[in-house]
Every structure is written in structure tokens, then in C-alpha cells.
Design a binder for these strands. Sequence first.
DNA 1: GATCCTCGAGTTCG
DNA 2: CTCGAGGATC
Length: 665
Amino acid sequence: MSSDPKARAAELRELLSRALAAYHVEDAPIMEDAVYDALFDELVAIEAEHPELVAADSPTRRVGGLSDKFQKVQHLEPMGSLEKVTTEEGLRKWDDDVRKRLGTDEQVAYVLEPKIDGLAVNLTYEDGILVRGSTRGDGVQGEDVSPNIRTIKAIPLRMNGEPPAVIEVRGEVYLPVSGFRELNERLAGTSQKLAPNPRNAAAGSLRQKNSAITADRPLSIWVYGAGHREGVEFETQFGMLDWLREHGFRTNPYAQRLESIEEVAAACVEWEKRRLELDYEIDGVVVKVDSLDQQRRLGVLHSRPRWARAYKWAPMTAVTRLLEIRIRVGRTGALNPWAIMEPVQVGGVTVTRATLHNEEDINRKGIRAGDDVIVQRAGDVIPQIVGPAGPHRRGTKEFRMPTHCPLCGTEIVKPEGEATHRCPNRACPSRGLETLINWTGVADIDGVGEQTIRILWEKGLVRSLPDLYRLTKEQLVELEGFAEISATAAIASIERSKDVAFSRVLLGLNIPSIGWVLARNLASHFGTVDRLIAATPEEVAEVEGFGADRAEDVVEWFADEQNCALVEELRGLGLRFESGEEERPAEGPLTGNTYVITGTLERFSREEATARLEALGAKVTGSVSAKTTGLVAGEEPGASKLTKAQRSEVPILGEADLLNLLGES
DNA sequence: GATCCTCGAGTTCG
DNA sequence: CTCGAGGATC
């Protein structure tokens, strides 16, 4: 260790920069966090005492501070934009054009890499020192965001190795998906606005006036090329990437050089399937002619290089008009607002509808009927409305829930502190109808779906569960769209459903706060409906998952005369109100263990896997927590469950591990 | 009283 | 899958 402050400061800068690069660029830490912090503090102390020693490349400059305004800066070489193609055919046509212009029949070699959905930046290095970082802007002029850029630890403040006199390094700043989730969790507790997606969050972070906030965001970068340069020359695109990597820049490990357009096309299609494997969002693949000589000969058209294309797939977000907000009343009486939209393509499917959850949510997002809105289909399938598109709204009125039920006219209630509005009328047609629709699912009735139930309801043929079991084939055949065969099948299916387990019957009765799990707990605890009817609130509260409130709900439900009559009628029709063997929780080698299943398994359906685990005494739940014994991950697992498991250090089991568990324990 | 955990409810498209 | 809310736990 040197005692000369100047030498020691240089030594520390060197050490800390290497540690940062190892951690953020190479993903291979060389230093304990605590050691890093101690050395960092030492450097801060030296620099505070000797301000003349503060160097442009000092890691202490990554901490951030305030700046008033972003200066406009001119890029030394313009940052072009990319012509896009959306099909394999488009790629081939481009390749034809490239070869014609080059006057060759030979295959052209290409470099491709994921197209990061982030923010393009230009990093200017002079003699190896980062002197400026700017946004892309209009391609000619960008904004100087140097203080913010310096806080991104994956960006070297000084290049490795022999530096050229000047080089503009181009890259895409992005927020990892995991970082985005964490950020939103943190912001959820504050008044700050949540960003709808990682790209917007990254953009907002990079344009912070207070770079200390930027420093707090886990931004990173993938570097993909160079603009203006003096003192270094390259022959190929791929060679350029190698050079950048050797000089301390984070280049994407999936960048690859391919010998023909056919290989390129295959890889592009492949990436569309693999994009969810990455911890960053990509909206396509960038394809470039590898030879820089060929690039020069092809040139640029309207600031778009002829030697590169963005292969983009269907976007996961889109803008469309919100036509109307409609209300649906659920089987519990809850009022559910949902959006009717101008049909729009999002992620390859046409979207026209989305739920809007509740009044508060709609107004918090600032959505009004008539607005242009942003629709998103993120990792999962279900579309959501993110918010209005742009500041100019067309909608005039803030959304208000109706004061009276659209079906029965009863006055709507909303208990203080609750999010949902409710129609309190227990005889409201919505409840009866939705209960019936729900029952077809609970009791596994095929051949009678939602549409049929709606028709039967409207004709007055089926207005209650017992009505369904009194339905005859003759009545069905008279309905439009029902022939002899399908009517017979439907009746048989209804008949079979009388045999569903007691717990399922309980579930289908539509008792408040009783779902899958609680219905089973009730069934196995009491065994028969008579014992359940006779139970006091205190006795019900002893059942797993029940407290005073839910116990009260259940007892109240069974105290109601109409409900009791319903139970008796269904029992008379032959439905089961006693639990069989299968409903008692098994004791076994896995008792006390809790598993979560995600993705698709090869050997089992998820229900089978659940049943097999439960048969050995295990519990299977829907979300990962610290109490989870293991996460069983099949094909295409849910990303949120995986990251949660990784963070809470819950072991992740493959299908092979599951088989082991089932076979050998 | 706060925090974590688990359950229930509603849900899109093809 | 995600949200809200009741229950359990410290």
C-alpha cells in the first residue's frame, strides 16, 4: 500500500474500476461487497482532502448529483435508425438487394444480435477516458446526460488496453426486467408514479435531473458498435464487437456471425420464441452485414443504412381507442368494469376487451372512455390497459360506477376502505346466472357451456341449480342449435355431475369467501353437510384458514332458510353432501412440505402433479414465499415465480426432481 | 401493530 | 396472472 495520497488514489481507482467491471461487465465478482465499500470510502476521503486528485475516471464520480438542464450536443457521426422488416420474406428480399448492389452471387455473412428495447446512447471517449454520454436525440443532436451515464456501473469510465485518440461507442441502456420489478415494488409504497414497462422506466431514469436517483436504478448497457473513431480501424462488425469487449465494454453474448441469410432467418424466428428467457426486453433482432468494406459500399439511404435491418416481431404494446366502459356483475355481486376497444393487434392477436378492475384503478391511471390508450400484453397472455396514450385526451368524463345495479336496479354499496362496488341484492339475477355458469365449470359438465346456460336462463327453463338437474332432453332439443345427439350428451353430462365430490358441491354453492381450498378444508373437517349446518361460529373458526370473519360468513349462509332449502333440494336430487376418502388430507413422507408448480410438465398435467404430491402429504399452493419447500418448474415457467424463488432462495426443481420426489420418497 | 402468507375472484383469445 | 383482503405470526 502506498502512503503517497496521489499514488494511493490512483491505486484505488484502478482496483475499484476493475472490481466494478468484474461485477457489472463480466458478471464475475472479484471482491466482497464490504471490501469494495471500504476501499471506496477510502478513495472518497482522499479526494475530499485533495480535490486536485479527482480524476475524470474516478469511480467516486458515479455517485451522482444535481444538474439543471441537458445541453444539446452534436454526434460526431450521426446515429442512423434502422429500416425494419417483419417477415422472413422481407429478410430474403433485403439479402437479394444487398447482393445485387455488391454485384456478387456469393452468400453474404451477417452479424445478428438481440434488439434491446431500451435507449440508444452515444459514449464519447478521448484517449480512453469517457468525456461525454448523450442520448440519441434526433440522430444528429442528442442531449448530454453525462452525469447520469457515469452512474451506470457497466459503462467504463476508462477503457481497457491501448485506447484510440477518439471513439464514439454506441449502445443501448436498459433496465433488467428483475430490476424493473424491484423498482416498482419500491415505488409502490411511495407517491412516485410507477412506470408501465422497463423501457419507460429506463428512459425516465436516464433523464433524471438528479443523477443520484439514476445511480439508484439498476441500469445496465449492451454495447453494439462504434461511430466516429480516430486511431483505430476495424474490418468486420464482429471484429468490432470483439475489440469493444476486450476494451472493457459489455457486448451481448448472443451476438453471432452467420454465413447466409437462411441461417439468419432461422435464428430470427428462433429468437421470437426465446425472448422471454432473457432478463431484458427485446423487440426484435438486429442484422448487419459483417464486412465493413461491404457496409461502406452499400452506403446509407435517408439516414438508414442499407447494410442493416431490424427484424421486428409483433409488438407487445399498442395504442387504440377505448370506446366504452361496460359493467358486468359477478356471481358475488361485485361490479366489474371492462373496456371495449377498437380492435388492435398486440403480440400477434387481436384485442378488443380488457378488465379495468375497479373505479379507483381506472381513475388512478387516468383512463376515460373515448381516450386513446396503451394496451399491453406482457409476459402473460392477458391484455391490460396501461394508461392513456399521450397527454391529449379525448374522453371528457371521469369514470363513475353506476349508483344502481344495471340488472336489478338495487342501490350499489361500497364499504368504506374496500375497492369493489357491490350489488347487495342476493336475489339479483346476476348472481343466479353467474352461479349456474360457474357450476358447469366446478362440476365438470361438458356439453353445456356459458352460452347454453344464458339461453336456458332467458327462456326461464333453468333459474337455479335444481332446475338444471330437472332439465329434460326434450326441452333441450327444442332449443335452437341443439340436435338429438348433443342434447343426449348434455343430459348425460349433467347426470354424471351429480357424483362430484362434496367439496366441489360446497365450492359451487357460491358461499361468500369459500373457494377451492377452503371448501376442501370444510369438507374434510366436518365430513357431512349436517355437521356443517349444526356448527357454531367458534367451531367453524377452528378449521384451517378460517378466522372469526369467514366463520361468521359461513354460519350465516347456512342459517338462511332459502339456502338450507337449496341444500335439501340438491340432496334430494342425488348430489353428494358427505365427503369420501379422497377428501381427507393424506399423511405421508412429504407432510409439512409446500410446493408451487409453474410451467408445463411433460409427464403430468398440473392437476395430476398436484394430486400426486398431496397424496404423499404435501401441500401445493399458488405463490412462492419463504415457506415454500420447492418450486417445480416445467416448460415455459412463469417468470415472476422463478425470480421470486431465486430471490427467496427457494430451490427450483425440474420434472426429474419431481419424479424422484414422487417415486422414491 | 406491522408484515408476511395464502386464498378468492375475475380474466383473453383461439 | 394479478390484485385485494383476511388470517397467521411475530
